[in-house]
Amino acid sequence: MDIDRIDQIIDRHQCEASSLIQILLDIQSENHWLSKEALTRVGEKLQVPFTRIQHIATFYKAFSLVPKGRHEVHICVGTACHVRGATRILDTVKDVTGIMPGETDMDLKFSLETVNCLGCCALGPVVEIDGKVHGKMSPGETADVLKNYE
């Protein structure tokens, strides 16, 4: 993401320090991660110390300081999914992809995250891949679904 684009986003928020989180969210959603250059630029323009930006970028779960994989796998571990066996689904995904929640594999194929509730409790346990929700999953089905992604 180039500096001009970052500046545009900052300007859209009137360069207000109170919009810092909103600006980072916009950059994250366009670029899928926050590079050090992006954070530094935001800090300069808003005149916010880098320590504070770094704390924000690591405090909130929505931000990533490393590039994400091509496919974002979200395992719902909300209470409803938990009592319906989400842990077993998560274990399966960990086995198949070889990564832990919060990680991205070496080929940048999958990024794995756990999420706390996708609001589809009726369909638990739920796996969301690139925004598509797969409901009522079993460990076996989960492994099968993951095979469809390149």
């Binding site: 110390p49 880098f50 320590t51 504070r52 770094q54 704390h55 690591t58 405090f59």
Partner: peptide, 18 residues
């Protein structure tokens, strides 16, 4: 000086020098 700050949250919270 803002040379040292916190990163992350909860049990993963740490200090970090810039």
């Amino acid at each position: 000086n803002y040379a040292v700050g916190f990163v992350d949250r909860g049990v993963r919270k740490e200090i970090s020098f810039i």
